[in-house]
Amino acid sequence: MGAWSKRLYIFLVYCFFYLPLLAMFLYSFNAAKYTTAWGGFSLKWYAALLRNNGLLDAALNSFLVAVCAASLATLLGGLAAVCLKRYSFPGRRALFIGILLLTVSPDIVMGISFLILFIACSVQLGFLTLLVAHTALCAPFVAVTVLARLEEFDEYLIEAARDLGASEAKALLHVLLPLSAPAVAAGWLLSFTLSMDDVLISTFVTGPSFEVLPVRIYSMVRLGVKPDVNALSAIMFALTLSLVLLAQVITQLRRK
């Protein structure tokens, strides 16, 4: 392949991935009411978005749930990974398989089962039920991510710490945690993303009193894509992009 055809090939690959996002981004500045035609540049949908309190509330709710669920899931999943790696106990293998199973089980099944469980326990659907469901959704992913990192962890480091007078808890805090920090951070970010854009489970486990963004968007676009959704999506994508860039910059700085 010549240099030009190589570049063309790469270009096509990027188009495949990013053209839809680019289209959405451009159309968020479209003055026309419908997505079908270009009606000139405008920021009015961004302005409309700011006035749409329902949508902003939903976004705030989503953010709140995502931060809480990601943090809880990171705690639980991280501890599960440490426990799977460090200790042998009856049912260890069952726990491991159970966690793997959760990462591949369909969201719709999880959504329905949570709904049945919450109804059976007569729990009011809302923030708490959403938090519980999202934590359960994310924790296995954190466990798998952290466990992968711990696989290459030298067990003697914990022994060395204890030999030098650290209790088990202190050894985990001063040695294991800092060394698995990248995986823990990755697990948190993954959880945050999973929770932030989950439609299926959220549809089942939240009630009208507590609306989250993906569910709200989903119900909006059922009647056709409105340009303010484009604006919202563009903002969300920009946020994601800056998060990824931030993470890159931080890792680069730490290497130096």
Partner: peptide, 9 residues
Amino acid sequence: FQSYALFPH
């Protein structure tokens, strides 16, 4: 320790 087990971080 045989592998020294120095804390790499």
